[in-house]
Amino acid sequence: MRRPLLFALALALAGCGKLDQEAMVLTVEPGWTAEVAASEKDGFASPDGLLWADGSLYVADEGGSAVRAWRPGSRTTLLADSRAGLASPEDLVRDSAGNVYFTDDTRGGLWRTDTAGRTVALVAPTRGLPSTEGLGLSSSGDLVVGDATGHRVLKVKPDGTLSVLVGPEKNIAKPESFAFDESGNLYIADNRENVLYLLRLDGRLHRAVADRPGFSPESLLFSGGTLFITDSDNGKLFRYTPDDGLNVVAVFGGSLANIQGIAADEGGALYLSIQSDLKGRKGYILKLSPRAGRQSPSSP
């Protein structure tokens, strides 16, 4: 009795050593191909927020306490790191002048790195922002910042002037990410209460997606009339339109399940940051490309 059991156990354990599928991406929506665009071997630690601009991907490298730029096919360029006071960069935007702004959920504040490489706190953490999350840039050049501690959404002028856009009375628990649609309405991801809000231009706040099991919005990207939403809790990439509602694009499993930031290049490919092991400084940037013949998500 014991010999066959021991043999079976040995077989199973031997098998464990060579299981080749440590992680997977399941494309629920047809017409996408998936690839690893970059990993920690390319100079990242564990990436969070992403931004695509002028042929480069800007990365809030949370695991590496740094903000980096990466042009596909080359090594990363360091824009700012812990020497400038960064601890846990979360989200980032870039203005038309090339300044990169970012939030930091451990250090707090709103930071700016200019084209000369100087990093300063545009809004210091001591101004009531001990932990900052989402970051957005409006067409008028104003920034919106998520205040995780005060449960507020703030508007910041380029000169650092602060005002409250959505106060704590609206019960947004953790404004994790923002995206403006083509009309200037603002989508807000609350990944503590698992609600997607829409703040209309007239100031009305609407719960676009709420009380849906298996949905916890992490990062938002508005591209080609569609809102793309990553969900780190459930390992999913969603698309949302007011007409079609919420639909799953892809499911991520194993060491790729912790899907964080999202950006899109000019060709419509989506870049997704994966934090495989934040403390162990491991992560990936995946690229989902539309197959030939498929309408690009960023095409009009």
Binding site: L26, T27, V28
Partner: peptide
Amino acid sequence: GFFQPRPFVHAQQAWHLEDGKL
């Protein structure tokens, strides 16, 4: 520690991580 998809998951269009590549 080890990820193997369910057989009915294996029937879907999917990519898996192998030597750092999908």
